[in-house]
């Protein structure tokens, strides 16, 4: 019931002059979340840098972004002014929800940011390190309750990959889904679950205050500002990054795609965007063109494989 109910909250620049490229960015999530913030930061940067005169953000929340994605793919066909924000969570959600629309039905433009998944335990927990966690998991997989976001999301995938990497049957992972990082946080702080998973930024203030112990981060490099190893360093061969991207409508011409890519690249390199990344604690992982397409394909097949192993996708 904590679904966010709005398609509003637009910080309006009403009197902006009309440039050639006006964009409408769909955030396929409610206000306040990562995708919404990405869309609104893009809006701010595109307008402040004069790349686009008028940028509107719309929210279509629900189902790991697949509701918004389906709407975007069917309604914006051929529209060179329509953009959608998305990310890794969508890859998993498309598979678990058996969504009729996939990322093949839109035109991915570029990866913008990435965030590590943090593996945390309450400060009072016996588990001091990844080794302790692995030992507990091997002793009795069911006794380790993992709290994170919705089933099949990046948190769940990370839990499954960790189990797989240490030779524990991923279907035995006792994963408890919460409707968001916040609700999971409450369960972790309350000591009702063994270990928690969510984006580093969700837990940052609790880690800083010493209420949560950060065991490891999921990316292949350490996260600046946090004194924690990567899973790889701890001998668990897992590297997951929760990336966010921007895609354009299906059915646009190559010229239109090139023009949008140029705009997005200019935005990503702009001072406004870079300073916004810093204040929000996002890591710049900009990637476009063929390199992004290759990475996307690799992520899709890896995700499908692990979701099948966990048992969420047949």
């Amino acid at each position: 019931m904590n679904k966010l109910l709005l398609a509003a909250l637009v910080t309006g620049a009403l009197s902006a002059p009309a440039f050639a490229a006006d964009y409408t960015i769909m955030a396929p999530a409610g206000p306040g979340g990562g995708w919404d913030q990405t869309a609104r930061t893009m809006q701010e940067a595109l307008q402040a840098e004069g790349i686009s005169g008028n940028v509107q953000v719309t929210n279509v929340p629900g189902a790991g972004g697949t509701i918004g994605l389906a709407q975007f793919a069917t309604q914006e066909n051929g529209n060179p002014n329509a953009l959608i924000v998305g990310g890794y969570v969508m890859v998993g959600a498309i598979l678990t929800n058996m969504s009729p629309v996939s990322l093949d039905n839109v035109t991915p433009i570029a990866r913008l940011t990435g965030e590590a998944v943090a593996l945390v335990v309450p400060a009072a927990s016996d588990i001091e390190s990844v080794d302790d966690l692995v030992a507990a998991l091997k002793a009795d997989p069911g006794a380790v309750a993992w709290a994170g976001g919705s089933a099949g999301g990046v948190d769940h995938i990370t839990a499954g990959l960790i189990a797989q990497a240490v030779d524990v049957d991923p279907t035995q992972v006792n994963y408890i889904a919460y409707s968001g990082g916040g609700e999971a946080l409450a369960a972790i702080l309350g000591g009702q679950v063994t270990v928690g998973l969510s984006g580093v930024s969700e837990f940052a203030s609790q880690i800083e205050a010493g209420e949560l112990r950060l065991l490891a981060v999921s990316t292949d490099t350490r996260v600046p500002g946090f004194d924690a190893p990567t899973l790889m360093e701890e001998g668990v061969d897992v590297a997951v990054q929760n990336w966010r991207m921007v895609a354009a409508a299906p059915g646009i011409t190559d010229e239109q795609k090139a023009a949008i890519t140029a705009d997005v690249k200019a935005m990503a390199e702009s001072a406004t965007w870079q300073s916004a990344l810093e204040t929000r604690g996002w890591v710049d992982t900009y990637l476009d063109g063929d390199a992004f397409a290759t990475q996307l394909e690799a992520d899709k097949s890896a995700t499908e494989a692990i979701l099948k192993d966990i048992g969420l996708v047949q």
Binding site: T171, Q172, I310, G311, L312, Q314
Partner: peptide, 10 residues
């Protein structure tokens, strides 16, 4: 409900 495919997870 009878049509649902149940995941084999715990």
């Amino acid at each position: 409900t009878s049509q649902m495919r149940l995941p084999p997870i715990q």
